[in-house]
Write a protein that binds this DNA or RNA. Structure first.
Lengths: 260, 260
DNA sequence: CCCTAATTTTATACGGCGTAGAGAGTTTTG
DNA sequence: CAAAACTCTCTACGCCGTATAAAATTAGGG
C-alpha cells in the first residue's frame, strides 16, 4: 500500500466540496446522484477492499452509472479520497464542551482522544494511506483538531505548545496504528497466522541470518514473540507507548504549572 | 500516494532475495542484469518521482530491456519494493559495539537513532509508503532493530519492555516523518508556499468555516502559523515530540533502575 | 408552447499499469 | 552435437484515471 495522491486539483473546488457549499444548477436535467451517495459507496469499497479497491469505475458501477458521469460531482479521484477521509473523521464524537476547570483531567481526556483516533484508524485502515498534504482542512478533521486542543487548553501551555503536544499525540497514534494495521493485514493477506508463518519460514530465516550480527535482536525478538504469542501485540504496544507519551507530556505540563 | 502493496508472493523467494542467497544457474545465457542494478534504478526513480514513479516498465526502459525480463530477477513489483526498502535502511550506520557500561548515555544514543531514522525518511520519503506487513525482515531493517535495541540494553528493562520502547520510538518517528514529508510535498506539488496558499484560499476558508465551532483551533492555528511563518514547522515538531517521548521513556527506566 | 441555452450523462479513446503465456535465442552439459 | 536449461522478447489481457465530443434531458424566455 502507498500513500495515495490527494488534492491535486483546484483547492477552491476541493474546499467547497468538503464544506458542502451548495452548487448552483438551474437549467439541465436533475442529477441522478449526489456527492453523499458517491462518498458512501467509495467508503464502503475502501472498507471492504482497501484503497486499492476504490476506483472510479467501480464506484460508478455500484451506482449504475458511467465512470465519466462522476466527474460532474467530483473533480477527480484525489478529491474523492479527500472527501471520504474527512467524512470518516466525522465518525468521531463532537468536541466536549469547554469545561471551566481544566486542570484535573487532561490526561484522561487526551488519552480518550488518542484512543478514539486509534480505533478510527483500525476501523478504516485506508485512512492511514490518504496523504493529507495541505492539511485537508475539512470540517471533521478540523473538529478533531479542535477537540484535541481543548484537552490541553488552560493548563499553562502557550498556544504553540498546545499545537505541538497535539501534533505529537497524532503522530504517535498514526504511527502505532499503521504498525497495527500492517500486522493485521499481513495475516489476512497471507492466510497464515503469525505462528504458522514463523513455523514455515523461521527455519529458512535461521539458515540465512548470521546470529553474531544480531544477538540482541534475536534474544529480544524471541522473548517478545513468546510473550505475545505472535510477532507483535499491537494493542499492547499502543497502550504502552501512549502511557510513555503521556508521561512525557505530563512532565512538560508540570513544569509550566510550577512556573506560574 | 498510497501505502503500497508488498510481499504478496512466495515468502521463500522474498527472503532469499533480501538476504542475497545466490541463485543456482548453470545452463542458460548469462544474465544481462543483476538484482543490484535493478534495485539501484528503482531506488533512483523512487527518489526522483516517488513510488508512483516506479513502474516495472520504466525500470526496464532505464535498463534497455523488456519489462518482462525483470521477472527473471524479481518475482514481482511487491518484492522489488521490499528490496529497495531494505536497501535504503542499509544506508544507516552499523550498530555501535555493545559497550560495557550502558547506563549513562541511553538517552543520547536513542536520540541519535531516532534522528537517523528521521533523516532517512526525509531522504527517501517513499519508504514511508512501503507497507512492511510481515515485518520485512531484511538484513538492514533487522540491523536497525538490533542497533536500536542496543541503545536500551542493560538498563534494567526486560526484553519485552525493550521491544516496546523501540517500537514506540519507531512509531513516533514514522508518524512525525510522514507529517513532515507531506508538508514538504504539498509545497512542491502545488508550487505555492504555505504563505501563498493561505493568502489565496484563507479568505474562502474563512467564509465557509463557522468560527464558533472551532474557537480554540482558530486561535491556536493562527498563533502557531505566526510563530512558524507557515502552517507547520516539521523539524521543530519532531524535536519537540522526541524530547517528550524520551522524557516518558526516562520515567520508565528510572522506575526500573530503582527497583533493582 | 416551443426553441434554445444550460446541464448531465454517455461513448469512445488514449496512454499508463502489472503480469500471464508462448516462443525465440543463448549457453552449458552429457 | 543434440538436448536441456535458462534468459529474454512479443503479444495480449484486464485494469486504471480521465480527455474529448456527442447525445440526452431539463428549464427559462420569447
Amino acid at each position: 500500500m502507498a500513500a495515495q495522491y490527494s488534492g491535486s486539483g483546484d483547492p477552491r473546488r476541493t474546499i467547497e466540496l468538503l464544506w458542502g457549499v451548495p452548487q448552483r444548477p438551474r437549467r439541465g436535467p436533475k442529477p441522478r446522484l449526489s456527492i453523499d451517495r458517491i462518498a458512501e459507496v467509495a467508503t464502503r469499497l475502501a472498507d471492504e477492499a482497501g484503497l486499492a479497491g476504490v476506483s472510479l469505475r467501480r464506484v460508478a458501477e455500484e451506482l449504475d452509472v458511467t465512470p465519466m458521469s462522476l466527474y460532474g460531482y467530483v473533480p477527480g479521484k484525489a478529491e474523492l479520497l479527500d472527501l471520504i477521509a474527512d467524512r470518516a473523521y466525522g465518525e468521531l464524537s463532537e468536541p466536549a464542551p469547554r469545561s471551566g476547570r481544566a486542570e484535573a483531567g487532561w490526561r484522561a481526556r487526551l488519552e480518550t482522544a488518542a484512543r478514539e483516533g486509534w480505533k478510527l484508524y483500525l476501523a478504516h485502515p485506508w485512512l492511514l494511506q490518504i496523504a493529507t498534504s495541505r492539511p485537508l482542512l475539512g470540517p471533521n478533521l478540523t473538529a478533531k483538531y479542535e477537540r484535541e486542543l481543548r484537552t490541553v487548553d488552560r493548563l499553562g501551555l502557550n498556544d504553540v505548545e498546545m499545537d505541538l503536544v497535539v501534533g505529537l499525540v497524532d503522530d504517535y497514534v498514526h504511527g502505532a496504528a499503521r504498525t497495527a494495521v500492517e500486522a493485521t493485514q499481513a495475516e489476512a493477506r497471507t492466510g497464515m497466522s503469525d505462528q504458522q508463518w514463523w513455523e514455515a519460514y523461521g527455519p529458512l530465516l535461521g539458515r540465512v541470518v548470521d546470529p553474531d550480527r544480531y544477538p540482541v535482536a534475536i534474544r529480544v525478538g524471541s522473548a517478545a514473540g513468546a510473550e505475545y504469542g505472535a510477532a507483535h501485540d499491537p494493542a499492547r504496544s499502543f497502550e504502552f507507548g501512549l502511557q510513555r507519551v503521556l508521561d512525557g507530556i505530563g512532565i512538560l505540563i508540570d513544569s509550566r504549572r510550577h512556573r506560574r
